[in-house]
Amino acid sequence: MKAVLRLTMLAGLLVAAPVRAEPPAHTCEVPAYLLTSESTLPKVEAAAKPGGKLDILVVGSRSSVIGVSDHSAAYPNRLQAYLKEKLPGVEVNVALELQVKKTAEEMAPTLEQLVTDKKPNLVIWQTGTVDAMKQADADDFRNALDEGVAAMQKAGTDVILMNLQYSPRTETMISGSAYLDNMRVVAQQHDVPLFDRFAIMRHWNESGDFDLFSASPGMELAKRVHDCLGRALSTFVVDAAKIKAADLRIQR
């Protein structure tokens, strides 16, 4: 019975524990290993020349934006801002193609046409969330990724895959691991960079940059997270495309 008593006391302590202290001012640093990729982005590298034009298309589901109508604070827009800053003299344009509530299997057939129409240098394909929520078949998911990436590469664009958000509150309800694994595998098979949004956001949550558990954080937290995602993504793109930002500066 002693053990039970001790346990009760511990439980009491747990409840009495003070509410988490405010996180320190956010820096949202990302460890280098999460922002490096062995795969390269040759089309982006070719486009990102002084006076050049870099067109990026983000294809994604609802977690690529915040809210319903105003997408200015979401990461695609922030990516554009950060890339413009990093690549002076390059005309950077990030477009967004939302495919709400679509699984990878539903998105994949549309991708080739999208690339043919919009002729981007780079497509950032954010997917997996809807599949995980619907518990889509893992094999179907991987095949859809496989076909989608191949079709886009064939249509003449670089591709980056972006995986799920780290969402601690819904972890008991959404099991993402199979989808995270498959995205990693397909990225390796096609030699395309994988932007590990899940690991990055989890890192921020654990290091105290953001309290992603917070029950009612309001709009502000969402905006800051997307700003940080945009910044991390810009670093990732520049790094994977092996663009020497310093060169661009000198030539300007």
């Binding site: 809210g67 958000q165 509150r169 819904t170 309800m173 959404i174 709009m219 937290l221 969402a222």
Partner: peptide, 18 residues
């Protein structure tokens, strides 16, 4: 409980699971 208490615009998509 989570469905009624939790409102985070960052996760509006994930909350669709509910």
């Amino acid at each position: 409980y989570v469905a009624t208490r939790f409102e985070n615009p960052l996760y509006s998509e994930e909350m669709g699971i509910l």
